[in-house]
């Protein structure tokens, strides 16, 4: 029986880049030209023999996931790895991995029935995406939202309790950098980058009495980037900023 054949078309790596520093960051924010961040496009940059693959959609069985998988199959060093991707976008696994890497994370539980509000809930099933979470504000609406997230109780969900006064904070991380001036969020982004090595990811946090805690990670569409974020990402991709 003849062996099969692999079709391998990883994106061509860009120029080498190294770690971002303060002046480089300012330079990046001034960058006005770079690779076209069109819908679905996949970009890569290489540094010290590691290919960093940038995509707006790293989800399981996506084009980017398979581009990374094929590089891994060929024994090339690529970031993020497919395992990091799976870990990042399954909420309890993401939180456990982050916690083990020293990142403050939200307390969570896995449930299949109604839970008291206020809380944030994420579906745990084949069709769930971390960007589609629900915030349960009161017990009345909680029942309906839980039913929706669990597909009428068919699937479990991950819940995170919201303490009094807690808020949901979001930030886009680009190679571990955020446009936010909040040092806690900047530290969170750096920690997430060190743990998961995902160049483009949105960080969802719960900001409460215990400080900023990771709630989940989710993909980011290029179209949702602010002009400053687009410029920063473009600067990375064109080698104007260094990893």
């Amino acid at each position: 029986m003849p062996d099969g054949q692999l079709l391998l078309e990883p994106p061509a790596p860009g120029e080498a880049i190294t770690r971002l520093s303060g002046p480089a960051r300012r330079h990046a924010l001034r960058a006005k030209s770079g690779p076209v961040l069109s819908r679905g496009s996949i970009h890569s940059v290489e540094r010290d023999g590691v290919v960093h693959l940038v995509s707006e959609n790293y989800s399981y069985k996506s084009e980017a996931y398979y581009a990374i998988l094929m590089q891994e199959t060929q024994g090339r060093r690529v970031e993020p790895g497919t395992k990091a991707i799976l870990d990042a976008f399954v909420v309890p696994v993401c939180l456990e991995r982050a916690r083990m890497d020293g990142i403050p994370v939200a307390d969570y539980a896995i449930s299949q029935s109604c839970i008291p509000a206020p809380a944030v809930i994420y579906g745990l099933n084949y069709f769930a995406c971390t960007s589609h979470f629900e915030v349960l504000c009161d017990d009345e609406s909680a029942r309906e939202l839980v039913r929706h997230v669990t597909n009428n109780g068919k699937y479990p969900f991950c819940s995170q309790r919201l303490e009094a006064g807690a808020r949901i904070e979001r930030a886009v991380s680009i190679f571990g950098n955020v446009s936010s001036t909040d040092p806690a969020m900047a530290g969170m982004a750096a920690g997430v980058w060190d743990s998961f090595c995902i160049p483009l990811v949105e960080i969802i946090c719960i900001d409460g009495p215990c400080g900023l805690r990771l709630s989940s990670l989710c993909p980011v569409r290029y179209s949702r980037l602010t002009p400053a974020e687009r410029d920063l990402l473009s600067a990375y991709l064109s080698g104007q900023v260094f990893l």
């Binding site: 799976l86 399954v90 456990e96 099933n125 084949y126 699937y155």
Partner: peptide, 13 residues
Amino acid sequence: TDPMNITYVASRM
């Protein structure tokens, strides 16, 4: 089992 369902969570834990 599937990486997107609860079995992967159990296995990873």
